Structure formats: C-alpha cells, structure tokens
Computed example of a mutant assay.
Amino acid sequence: MGLFSAIFGKTDNSQLSEAIKDGAFLVDVRTPDEFSAGSVKGAVNIPLDKVPMELPKFKGKKNIVVFCRSGNRSGQAKSILEQSGFQNVINGGTWEDVNQLVNE
C-alpha cells in the first residue's frame, strides 16, 4: 500500500471487487459537472460537500463504495460516513478504477 493509499484508506481490490459484485451502493463524490462528464454505471452522484446532508440515502446499504477523481475526496467521504456510524464504507479510489471493476 502506498503512502497516499495509507493516508486516505484506499482498500485492496479484492475487497472492493467483492463488494461491487455483491451489489454495493456506488457513490461518486465528485461535482455534478465531473459526474456528468463520465462515471460508473449505476452510481449516484452525492458531491463530497453534500454527504453530511444526504446521510439518509446511505442507511440500510450492505456495502457503500465511494470514489472520485483521485481518491482524496472519497477518503474524506469515507471518514465522514464512518464518523456518522457507517461501518461498511469502502474507498474505491478513482472512478476509473471502480468502473473497470464494474465492467469485469
């Protein structure tokens, strides 16, 4: 695990892949403009600054995968969700990484 991954809590691909195969709630935390330029099929867009106000959307989800452009904002989103009591949050890193796993 690299320093960046250690800091932002990016998970290993096997855990991420299993969560995706199991129907994880996929959340792109980039801006609406970034999201509209391309994202992961089936993902919802909840920008990082809106995550605290949108907590009800995360309730009852077996697994939550958050992702963004670089893994930075998704790391922050993971922290926000965990501080709000969610235990099942995975930082998927970049939307391209998550997209690749979704399309396997």
Rank of each mutant, 00 (worst) to 15 (best):
Asn72Met: 12
Phe25Arg: 03
Val44Pro: 10
Gly42Lys: 14
Pro32Trp: 12
Lys41Asn: 08
Lys21Gly: 15
Gly38His: 07
Phe67Tyr: 15
Leu16Gly: 08
Met53Ile: 00
Val29Arg: 03
Val40Met: 08
Arg69Thr: 12
Asn63Ala: 08
Lys50Tyr: 12
Ser39Leu: 05
Glu54Gln: 15
Asp22Trp: 12
Phe35Pro: 15
Val40Asp: 10
Ser14Gly: 07
Pro47Thr: 09
Lys41Thr: 06
Gln15Cys: 04
Lys57Trp: 02
Val27Lys: 00
Glu34Arg: 01
Lys41Trp: 04
Leu48Thr: 00
Glu54Phe: 02
Lys50Cys: 06
Phe25Asp: 02
Ser17Arg: 15
Glu54Gly: 00
Ile64Lys: 14
Pro32Gly: 06
Leu48Pro: 00
Gly38Cys: 12
Val65His: 13
Lys57Gly: 01
Ser74Val: 11
Arg30Trp: 01
Pro47Ile: 08
Val44Asp: 01
Arg73Val: 08
Thr31Ala: 09
Ser70Thr: 15
Leu26Cys: 04
Ile46Asp: 03
Val44Lys: 11
Lys21Val: 06
Ser74Asn: 07
Lys41Ala: 14
Val66Asp: 00
Thr31Leu: 09
Val65Gln: 07
Gly42Thr: 07
Leu48Lys: 01
Leu48Gln: 02
Met53His: 08
Val40Arg: 14
Lys59Gln: 11
Gly42Val: 14
Lys59Ala: 14
Ser39Tyr: 10
Gln15Glu: 13
Phe35His: 09
Val66Trp: 04
Glu34Asn: 03
Ile46Phe: 05
Asn63Thr: 09
Glu34Trp: 03
Val66Leu: 06
Ser36Met: 05
Pro52Ser: 00
Ser74Ile: 05
Phe35Leu: 07
Lys61Ser: 02
Asp33Ala: 12
Lys41Met: 10
Pro47Asn: 10
Ala19Thr: 14
Ile64Arg: 13
Ser70Phe: 02
